[in-house]
Nucleic acid binder design. Sequence first.
DNA 1: ATCTGTCCCTGGACGC
DNA 2: TGCGTCCAGGGACAGA
Length: 292
Amino acid sequence: MPELPEVEVIRRQIEPLVKGRTLSRVETTSPSYFFVTPPAALKRGLKGRQVSALERLGKYLLLRFIDGAGLLLHLGMTGQLFCTGCYSPRLLSRESRASVDEKVGRAVFKPDIHTHLVLHFNDHGPSLYFRDARKFGKVQLLRPNQRSARLAKLGVDALRATGDELYRLTRNRKRAIKSLLLDQSLIAGIGNIYADEALFVAGIRPTKRAPRISREQSFAIITAVRSVMQRSIQSGGSSISDYLQPDGRDGGYQDELMVYAREGQPCLRCGTCIKRVVIGGRSARYCPRCQR
DNA sequence: ATCTGTCCCTGGACGC
DNA sequence: TGCGTCCAGGGACAGA
C-alpha cells in the first residue's frame, strides 16, 4: 500500500510528465465515496487548467495549477497512478487491467472498471490514470486559495521530523508508540510497513507505551524512519499488494523488508520467529528478541 | 485527549 | 474446480 516512499516515487515520476501541460478532458466513473468532489464538478473544474507542480504532503499528492487551484489525491490502500504506455508483467495477471501490445509483445496498461479518473491533456501526449480497486482513495478539487481540511490536519512530514519533535510528541500520551507513529496528525507519511520496519531498525517493540520512550530512543526511531524511507524511495518503493510505479515497474523495497509481511518467519538478524500483534486495530509485526 | 467501533470496498485466502 | 465466507486496511467520523 502506498505510504510516503511510494507516493514520493510516484511524484518524482509524474511531475516532469505533467508540469506545464493543460488539461483538456477528464473521464471518471460514477459518483462514489472515492469522489470528494463529484465527477461532474471535477470535469467542469479541471478542464483548461495548466499544471504548475506536483507536490507531496504526507501520503497526499497535490497537483497544483498555475491559477492556485489544486487537485488533491490520496491513494488509500490500493490506489495506483499510471501513465499512458506503462507496462508490467504483473498487469497480465488480470485480463481486464491490461492488454498485450502486439507490436512490443508486452502487457500495456489499459483502463478498466477500477480506473476511476483519467486526465487527458490538450497536447495529446501521455494521459494520467488513477486506478483504485477498493476505492479507499480520494479525489478532491481545491478552488484557488481554498484550504484543505485534510491537509490542515497533517502533522510534520516524516522526512522532516526530528528526534526532538518525536520526543515531545511522546510526552503526555499513553498510546503505544506504533499507534502514535501511524497518526497522520502527529507525523505525516508513515503507514504500517514503515512503522514496523523503522521500529525494528530502532530495536523498539511496537507495543511500548509512548511515555516510556527515551529521548535517545526518539532519535533512534526518527533516524530509522528516515533511513528506511530514503532507502525505499531509492529502490522504487515496496510492491506488496497493488503498488507499482507509474511506468509499471515493480518497486524493490519489498525484498528488503525485515519484519513486515514476515510473520511466522525467522528474524533475518537473530532467527527468532517474527510475531504479530494487533495495536489499535492494525496488525504489527516485530522480532521479540531484537525489539524490547 | 484518546479509545473503540463503523463505514467505505473488493481481491485474495481459505474451507468445504 | 468451484463456490461461499472472511478479512485486511487508511482515514473520516460518531460516540463513549
